[in-house]
């Protein structure tokens, strides 16, 4: 088999929230509201982010564990229907290496006073193309972080 390949994959996450679709939508649309929940794990510290919530607008978000690789999220909004639907594409970089590109759809449906959220991500994982770089940058960072956490004084 050739090493020139891309892995495609789709996954779905469904959640229900005790808040109206308008409130859930606002948590995606308003940068301050979004910053409250769209962030890395607590140990990552503050992310650096920028967003322009309109069709064709971009969003970037960078963060990472201290000493580890920088995780970058770069999105472009493809379609927005207020309180109902948000479609965006995003790519993920570890340091300078682009690892995956995804098409993401968020659908909001009213559900007995709350909101049902359906998240669908269709991704293309560019592993094979980035293999040497990924090994050097991404995984080394991961392993370094692991190694740091195993330090005797830790």
């Amino acid at each position: 088999m050739s090493n020139r390949s891309v892995t495609h994959s789709t996954f779905v996450i469904e959640r229900r929230f005790d808040a109206s679709p308008a409130r859930v939508f606002n948590a995606f649309a308003d940068p301050q509201a979004k910053a409250r929940w769209f962030s890395g794990p607590p140990e990552w510290g503050p992310d650096i982010s920028e967003m322009d919530f309109r069709v064709g607008g971009r969003e970037t978000n960078r963060g990472g564990a201290p000493g580890g690789p920088v995780h970058s999220f770069d999105a472009t909004y493809q379609d927005i229907v207020p309180n109902e639907r948000i479609v965006f594409t995003y790519d993920m970089h570890l340091d300078d290496v682009r690892i995956s590109v995804s098409l993401t759809t968020i659908e909001l449906t009213p559900d007995a006073g709350g909101t049902r959220l359906k998240f669908t991500e269709q991704g293309a994982f560019l592993d094979a193309f980035d293999k040497p770089a990924l090994r050097e940058e991404g995984t080394k960072g991961l392993l370094d972080a692991l190694e740091a956490s195993l330090k005797p004084d830790h």
Binding site: I13, R15, W37
Partner: peptide
């Protein structure tokens, strides 16, 4: 990552 973000979204909405 998304599961964690949605947990955080639930906490925020609550």
């Amino acid at each position: 990552d998304w599961e964690r973000r949605f947990d955080q979204l639930g906490d925020y909405l609550a």
